[in-house]
């Protein structure tokens, strides 16, 4: 994607910066301006836990063109140790190693690139612990 679209998300992609509600304590990722639990607008910056547990996952065999050289790849939703839920690929594994309940840790990887000449899009992925 063009850098102009990537740039606003750098704090999230690189450093897992979300928000936490000062009233009800809910953790949001990506960050929000209004709490989706209690409606409060008093939120503070919060950095997500780096470890969690797989709640569900899939193995993508038919990807968009951008990911066609990466198939099959695993995408999971994990519940992080602070309660936030995070969607990311599980890398450095084969699909049969992934199961609901397995522990994961966040790593920093190349997610995609804007063709051969455009920007490289870095971000978070999971690895199995």
């Amino acid at each position: 994607m063009p850098i102009q679209r990537f740039y606003p998300h750098i704090p999230q992609r690189y450093r897992l910066e979300g928000t936490k509600c000062k009233k009800c304590g809910k953790v949001h990722f990506p960050p929000r301006q209004v709490c989706n639990s209690c409606g409060s607008k008093e939120l503070e910056p919060y950095r997500l836990a780096e470890e969690g547990e797989i709640i569900t996952y899939t193995v993508v065999y038919t990807p968009p063109d951008d990911f066609k050289t990466k198939k099959p790849y695993v995408v999971a939703i994990a519940k992080m140790d602070d309660g936030a839920k995070l969607t990311a690929q599980v890398t450095d594994c084969t699909p049969d190693e992934v199961e609901i309940g397995k522990r994961v840790r966040v790593v920093f990887r190349k997610i995609n690139a804007e063709g051969k000449s455009g920007i490289i899009e870095y971000g978070y992925k999971f690895v199995l612990i």
Binding site: P30, V60, I111, N112
Partner: peptide
């Protein structure tokens, strides 16, 4: 930015 960016497709979302 937080689903499709990670290679999630519609079949993949419903697979989850």
């Amino acid at each position: 930015e937080y689903e499709a960016f990670h290679g999630l497709t519609f079949p993949a979302l419903y697979a989850l």
